[in-house]
């Protein structure tokens, strides 16, 4: 029964057919996406590595620099979290930490720990656990929302002082697109690959 796909929106049973890369198979009854074309494992690995580098840049460099009367302040991702914690908003700080650091980091690390061994022809350690963790973590990652947040913040500050986006923002942009690309992978393809490796 491995060749069946059930629509998770309307419960209609479909027979799986091959779809080209980047194409999406849709449910015949409700029109919802069923699955995406199988991405090449090497391509996914390359995108995951790009996301890793972008994650480091986004965290290491300031998102924006503001200068008033010769004084400069920089906002880093971590600085935004610390600021909300200092303003006695630990809940907001926790929400930001989860959606901007923990969720993307876990997703990147977990994907790499699956992709690297699969690419090398080995079954990853704790494969089923990792795949479930990725599935659970994904809805809580909000890097793309943060990207728009940086844009809004920069524009709001323009009236107050001269504000320049920094390298950190570049990291956020790249990470957003890399994670979006990785998000559309078909888990069934990875499972099939893992089952082949074991056999």
């Amino acid at each position: 029964m491995g060749e069946l796909a059930i629509c998770r929106y309307c419960d209609t049973v479909h027979r799986r057919a091959d779809v080209s890369v980047r194409a999406t198979a849709r449910c015949v009854r409700c029109g919802s996406p069923l699955y995406h074309g199988n991405a090449d494992l090497s391509a996914m690995l390359a995108v995951a590595l790009t996301a890793t580098i972008a994650f480091v840049i986004a965290n290491a460099f300031p998102l924006m620099t503001m200068s008033v009367n010769g004084r400069q302040t920089e906002a880093t991702l971590w600085g935004a979290i610390v600021a909300s914690y200092d303003q006695e908003l630990p809940l907001v700080a926790a929400a930001l930490t989860i959606s901007l650091i923990v969720a993307p980091l876990i997703e990147i690390v977990l994907l790499l720990s699956v992709l690297v061994p699969l690419r090398a022809g080995a079954r990853p350690l704790g494969f089923s656990w990792i795949m479930r963790a990725i599935h659970i973590m994904r809805p809580w990652r909000m890097v793309e929302v943060f990207l728009l947040g940086v844009v809004v913040a920069v524009v709001k500050l323009m009236g107050l002082a001269s504000t320049v986006p920094g390298w950190g923002s570049f990291g956020v942009i790249v990470m957003t697109f890399a994670l979006a690309t990785l998000g559309s992978f078909d888990p069934v393809a990875l499972w099939r690959r893992a089952d082949e490796v074991r056999a």
Binding site: L63, M64, M66, V68, N69, R71, T73, E74, A75, T76, G79, A80, I81, V82, A83, S84, Q87, L89, V92, A95, L96, S99, L100, P139, M142, V145, F146, L148, G149, V150, V152, A153, K156, L157, L160, A161, T163
Partner: peptide
């Protein structure tokens, strides 16, 4: 759904960057 988190992130960012002592500050 999650796009509504936008304002929360903007405010946190502004609070982080605008810490100029008595000249200007932004607080959530």
């Amino acid at each position: 759904g999650h796009w509504s988190m936008l304002d929360v992130m903007v405010v946190a960012l502004l609070a982080a960057v605008v810490q100029l002592g008595r000249f200007a500050s932004i607080e959530p």
